[in-house]
Design a protein around this nucleic acid. Structure first.
Lengths: 207, 207
DNA sequence: AAAATGTATTTTGTATACAAAATACAAAAA
DNA sequence: TTTTTGTATTTTGTATACAAAATACATTTT
């Protein structure tokens, strides 16, 4: 039966999930007919989804050869962190300038449940971390910024558990960033947000 | 006759050109069959090109309605400039840290022909300006950064002639940025690159 | 005349068909 | 055995076909 309501979107989401959870492995070739059949769709909407994923650095196309799950080398990971540094730094600056209590609240809410905890659940914290960083971007209301920030989920895949540094170390930093935003100190907010990413990058790089 | 060597790429380039030079107007609907026929191709490779353009903020898709040439409002233009501020600032920083004479040479070459000129040709300077800013990004060798920097050409379209401020004002600034990069002063390079964009943004905003 | 309804046309979204390029693999040659 | 060559198979890139949604437009109703 033929559907006409955006099959591409679910395919896109499904493939993204499969890539991020490792069901499709790095470097693996995506044979269109095979994947299309396994998902019960034709190659046309599948191709749309793949092109979207290519633009998110999750899939790589080699013309006349096929689509491959993007395999990130160390340099690319570092380069992605450098981009995040620039973008999240700017986001923190913008939020500090906006002075909106609701924004502070939402950012704090990511982490309040982890305060004064003896042991922090890594899985839960990792999710909160991802939420926080993506919120930082979204709350700016700058849609071009949001459009080019698609790296958030990538490191999840790169680093097994999704965290480069332990929660004990980063929880503090997150609240410092929020505090700087709340105080309206744009320079401080930007610097702290950048330092936060930079520390992780340097740790990854010197591994 | 059926071709099998990336028709999408030329279509993409052609459409991009048509959008940037105004042949396709902002907000105009792109009726696939019409464009496909006028380009002598089918809808399949056209769709690939359109999806690529969508990811570059040049085309907007409204599901089940069609693809439209993206019309940028003032907020979006400002938001794009904010992104450029973050990205080009970071690029200038990276180049300053890299300390490579060839890089300095290439950046300088963009503008040397305009030095000590009585009258500067706007068209030529506008092209040089675009070259400079895209080089700034490319020379970092950071491919994710290059991938997310696709705004360079957009303001060309937004601002008629492609320049927000007169060459007399910006020529100086460009050389100051290059000088800071050459001296290896990363903070200075980043600040100047950001200020350069910010000034144009503020001018646009207060129009 | 304006609004509502129904029908015809257009256009999108998806599936399928098919040619050419890429790949796999077996047979022949070195 | 290793390399080369030729053939069969697979897979991509493009074109086309077709159903459903969207749009246009004329007719009817108020």
């Amino acid at each position: 039966m033929i559907e006409h309501n955006n099959i591409s979107q679910p395919i896109y989401l499904k493939l993204k999930e499969m890539i991020l959870n490792g069901e499709l492995k790095q470097g693996e070739k995506i044979v269109q007919e095979k994947i299309a059949e396994s998902l019960g769709v034709s190659r046309t909407p599948l191709m749309k989804a793949l092109l979207a994923l290519e633009n998110e650095y999750l899939v790589e196309s080699i013309p006349r050869r096929g689509m491959y799950v993007k395999a990130l080398n160390k340099k690319e990971i570092v380069d992605i962190y450098i981009c995040r540094e620039a973008l999240e730094g700017m986001a923190a600056r913008l939020l500090a300038l906006s002075k909106d209590d609701k924004i502070i609240k939402q950012l704090e809410d990511c982490f309040t449940s982890f305060l004064n905890k003896e042991k922090i659940n890594i899985k839960a914290y990792s999710k909160a971390d991802e939420k926080f960083h993506s919120l930082l971007i979204k709350l700016t209301g700058n849609s071009p910024l949001d459009k080019i920030y698609f790296f958030g989920k990538i490191h999840d895949k790169v680093i097994g558990h999704g965290l480069v540094r332990p929660p004990e170390e980063t929880l503090q930093e997150h609240f410092k960033i929020i505090k700087a935003i709340a105080s309206g100190n744009a320079n401080e907010a930007e610097n702290l947000a950048r330092l936060h990413i930079k520390k992780s990058r340097e740790l990854l790089f010197n591994q």
